[in-house]
């Protein structure tokens, strides 16, 4: 009862982000997704220090082996160790998948918000979106390689130059759906009462977008992001067929899956590993996204 006499709270107010974190860590799906994701990252990046077989080393006598003690995941048609290829491939695929997704969602989100929020920009930005949606993908990618491969390789070195090119190529060809979806949501949100209220107390456009618009369009963005990762990992493998990707002896999950498809009947385990890895990564990101979305929604926080 003494508390009433002393209105000053003794503990500092809980910050919003602490609430979010509390909610997030009690979200079973998010936790499971997070742990799984960290586990995949750990195996892929730390595994090669323990499992030191070179992913490009060819041991021709050991080709087409099933899982065994020397090769836990078996070997491919040239006798390369599938486990080390999976790890090396994972490094590239996860890096490409996440970066390209961030770029696509970032670009899509930005254009979508700007188009939805500022009426004057809407026409121009949406016609730009229409244009990008209409461009034939394959010739566009081939033009990009032709124009930029040598310049980028020269500036950033062959590997990072290629990485940059691939990420930009995927990003620049997959931001449009996100932009259209975000714009649609922003158009509807903008007319809601709370925006009017916020405007009436003099909130700037920047504040309006960051504080009121963005948190409310998070869920479609999250879905786009999850689907985007799967897309980017698969698209990367398609790019390498065009000669736009990494050198052909450089494994990635998408490429491992593609190369193994023809051996589906003879060595089914070879398709299983990359398929499983891509699915698990996408699932874990999906659950993470779900958790994050729930955590950021004040209405269900603490339920």
């Amino acid at each position: 009862m003494t508390e009433i006499g002393n209105p000053q709270p003794r503990t500092p107010p809980r910050s919003q982000w602490r609430d979010v974190w509390d909610q997030f860590k009690h979200h079973r799906g998010a936790l499971a997704g997070g742990v799984l994701f960290l586990l995949i990252i750990a195996v892929v990046y730390l595994g090669p220090f323990i499992w030191t077989i070179d992913p490009t080393f060819i041991d021709i006598r050991a080709r087409n082996q099933g899982p065994n003690l020397t090769h836990p995941f078996g070997t491919d048609q040239l006798g390369r160790d599938t486990f080390s290829r999976m790890m090396a491939g994972g490094q590239t695929s996860i890096a490409v998948g996440l970066t390209a997704m961030l770029l696509a969602v970032g670009l899509g989100g930005l254009i979508g918000v700007l188009a939805g929020f500022f009426r004057r920009l809407d026409g121009a930005l949406m016609r730009l979106t229409d244009l990008f949606l209409s461009l034939p993908l394959l010739p566009l990618l081939l033009v990009m390689v032709m124009l930029f491969r040598e310049t980028l390789s020269a500036t950033f070195g062959p590997e990072s130059g290629m990485f940059l090119l691939i990420v930009v190529a995927i990003g620049i060809t997959s931001w449009m759906p996100t932009a259209r979806i975000v714009r649609g949501d922003v158009l509807a949100l903008k007319e809601r009462e709370f925006i009017l209220a916020a405007r009436s107390i003099g909130t700037t456009n920047f504040g309006m977008i960051t504080r009121h618009i963005l948190p409310n369009i998070l869920s479609p963005i999250m879905v786009s992001a999850t689907l985007g990762i799967a897309n980017a990992i698969i698209t990367e493998s398609a790019l390498s067929f065009l000669g736009l990707g990494f050198p052909p002896d450089f494994p990635t999950w998408g490429r491992l899956l593609n190369d193994a498809t023809v051996y589906l009947q003879d060595y089914p385990e070879r398709v299983f590993w990359p398929g499983l890895a891509i699915s698990l990564t996408v699932l874990s990101v999906n659950y993470l996204g779900d958790g994050l979305r729930d955590a950021l929604d004040p209405r269900i926080r603490g339920r």
Binding site: I58, I60, L78, F241, D249
Partner: peptide, 13 residues
């Protein structure tokens, strides 16, 4: 780009 050629490249490398 051709699966057999990529295998040859890896072996010859």
């Amino acid at each position: 780009t051709n699966a057999v050629r990529q295998d040859f490249q890896a072996l010859i490398k």
